[in-house]
Computed example of a mutant assay.
Amino acid sequence: MIVLGIESSCDETGVALVEAAGTQVPRLRAHALHSQVEMHQAYGGVVPELASRDHIRRVLPLAQQVLDEAGCHLADVDVVAYTRGPGLAGALLVGAGVACALGAALGRPVLGVHHLEGHLLSPFLSADPPAFPFIALLVSGGHTQLMQVEGVGRYTLLGETIDDAAGEAFDKSAKLLGLAYPGGPALSRLAEQGDPAAFKLPRPLLHSGDLDFSFAGLKTAVLTQVHKLGDALEQRKADLAASTEAAIVEVLVKKSLAALERSGLRRIVVAGGVGANRRLRSQLDAACARRGVRVHYPELALCTDNGAMIALAAAMRLQGGVQQARADYAFDVRPRWPLGELTEG
């Protein structure tokens, strides 16, 4: 079974081909990605209308690129998958519309995929894929969640952010520091030059006794330090960036370890854009090694939004009989779609 996956939830257009056979973990045949970062930089953030229009321009050329790289033809595709949500409504409609049009033209079924499930399952495409069950730390954009994962579609929410997510804390703090969009990666790069202990910043909900997160207070603390530094900000910017990153990472690591301890599981998956953060990987790896816990990440190229994770999630749902693809080609999108509403059926 060959699945063509289309991702268009925000500011990346991703297309990929995944092949699934029997019960084996699906393998990635080819993928291509176009990032809109350069286009949105002039505005300091994503402009939804521009994002949608760019998806329209990019998706079919990327699909052809992927087919050529895999040595396949459209007729070889068995299922067309697309991101149904969550994301920007207009951007999601582009991927959904193209996927259903392709499905109708080819006489192939289509399947709408949950964006966050794609991230959650993306480590299965890595050189060191996990095995069920595991704890998942999902840190993607406006989402920070801890899940207990028993299998495809079998997810129990253990904790989530009650305000700003980790990715938002990175981005908003970077903006306060005057860093260019996208702020999160820029802050992480600057942090490598700074002292993570230079500023005493809060670790919200670190000792709350639950597995929820809160990063709004950290953003406020960063703003306070920026005002205090005034003209000296340029000289201390790297230290403040490093201290901010250290605060976010400490909370993520300690809450993840708490989730492992409560569940009794010995395996954790980290997925989403923040999962590419070097400090997070280093500290979580070290902490889990001391406890004999296995840690799995997506390949770095698959941490951001991409079509491979969408094709993979569709393939794994179909393989496991969790869901059936549809051939009526009627579609909708769900800009707000909690992962907890995703069931096995």
Score class of each variant (00 low, 15 high):
A238W: 07
V80I: 15
L312S: 06
P335N: 13
A127N: 14
R57V: 11
R279H: 10
M147Q: 13
A191R: 04
A286K: 08
S122Y: 01
A32M: 02
P48V: 06
E49L: 02
L137K: 01
G85N: 10
V79H: 10
A327T: 08
A330D: 13
P196R: 07
A241G: 00
Q148D: 10
T224Q: 15
A20M: 07
E12L: 13
L205H: 02
L60D: 06
E344A: 14
A246K: 01
S263E: 01
G141F: 04
E341K: 14
V94R: 05
R58Y: 07
F134G: 10
Q324E: 13
A75Y: 06
V269T: 11
L257N: 02
H143V: 04
D54A: 15
D239F: 13
L187T: 05
S256Q: 03
D239L: 13
E250D: 12
C303F: 04
I6S: 09
V59L: 12
G183D: 02
G107R: 01
G90Q: 09
G184M: 06
A242S: 05
R294N: 12
A91Y: 09
P130S: 13
H31G: 06
Y155D: 11
G194D: 07
L312H: 04
G5T: 13
G273K: 09
R326Y: 12
G85M: 09
V25G: 08
Y181W: 15
A51D: 09
A258C: 10
A216R: 00
A246R: 07
G5Y: 12
G14V: 10
P48H: 01
D68I: 03
Q283H: 13
V295K: 04
G272T: 06
L102Q: 01
G272D: 08
V152K: 07
T161L: 09
T304A: 12
G90H: 07
A131W: 11
T343H: 13
V149C: 14
G118D: 05
V47P: 11
K219L: 00
A70C: 10
R203G: 01
Q41M: 14
K228I: 13
Y329I: 08
G141A: 14
L257T: 02
S8R: 01
I56E: 11
